[in-house]
Computed example of a mutant assay.
Amino acid sequence: MATPPPPQQGAAPQNPYGMPPQQGAAPQHNPYAMPHQPQPQPQPQGAPYGNPYAAYQQQPQHAGQPGYACRCCGARPAAPGTVRGHQGLLVMMRFLSTHGPFCRDCGTSIVRDMSAKTLWQGWWGPASLFITPLTVLINLVPRSAFRKLAPPVGGFRPPLDPGKPLWQRPPALIIATPMVLVALSIVALVVIGAATG
């Protein structure tokens, strides 16, 4: 039976099976390490491969552009906001919403489209007579936030076309006509009541 050669005097014991050293054991000598290269440092427990997001965290942010990107086109700058809509039905009603962030053009387009649809779909119910104008007024808050943004740049697709302003769209004109007639009839009733009283 062959016996292993005796260890040399002064040499560190080597691990023939490649098992990692146990806690508290002295580090073993690597006979294949180059003398001029530093030994790799052991990784701390819980992070065996380092930080996988380090490359993304070190990327520089573009100056003057906040952290939001538009949900529709990916352009910056963008602002968070919720655009609301309303559909009134004879017995029921539906509340609609679209959540941002949106760039200036996409946000303006969505506000105008949802408000225009609300103006002609929102009146068909008893409670909707009050909810519809309130919904259009609530949309003024995200609209003002989108209007303050700079022109969108750097998206993965072109931004949405804002289109015509709300007051130039047919649904707004259709609704505006009866509202003006109602306002004029109230003024006429007040004037007639004052003249006959």
Rank of each mutant, 00 (worst) to 15 (best):
I110Q: 08
Y17C: 02
G81L: 01
G46I: 06
A69F: 04
D113S: 09
P60K: 03
G81C: 04
P44H: 08
Q58V: 10
Q61G: 11
P126V: 15
C106Y: 01
F102Y: 14
R71A: 10
A75I: 11
W120V: 01
G24T: 02
G81S: 01
K117I: 03
W120F: 13
P38E: 14
Q59S: 08
Q41S: 14
P48C: 09
A79P: 03
A69W: 00
Q87H: 12
T98A: 12
F95N: 07
Y56G: 05
M114S: 02
P126I: 15
M92H: 15
G107I: 07
P60N: 13
G64P: 04
P35S: 05
P66E: 09
G50I: 12
C103T: 04
G122K: 02
Y68L: 15
G85F: 08
R112W: 05
P52L: 07
Q59V: 13
Q45V: 13
A47H: 10
M19Y: 02
T132K: 03
A63I: 14
Q87P: 04
I138N: 06
A69L: 03
S128D: 15
Q121N: 09
P35F: 06
S115R: 00
M19S: 05
H62W: 00
G125W: 08
P16F: 01
P77R: 03
V83P: 00
A63D: 12
T135N: 06
Y32C: 05
M92A: 10
F130V: 15
G81I: 03
R112S: 02
L96E: 04
A79D: 03
V136P: 00
V136C: 04
A127T: 11
Q58K: 15
L140F: 06
T132S: 08
Y68W: 11
F130A: 14
T135P: 05
Q28E: 14
N51F: 11
R94W: 02
L119A: 11
P44L: 11
G85T: 04
Q41Y: 09
P60V: 05
P27E: 15
C106I: 00
L119Y: 03
Q87M: 13
P80V: 06
P142W: 01
P60E: 09
R94H: 11
R94I: 08
A55K: 05
Q58F: 01
P42L: 14
G122V: 04
A78K: 02
A33H: 07
D113M: 10
R84V: 12
Y56D: 10
G122S: 03
R76P: 01
A79C: 04
M19G: 06
P52R: 08
H36W: 12
G74D: 07
V141K: 10
V83F: 07
Q22A: 14
A25Y: 07
G18D: 05
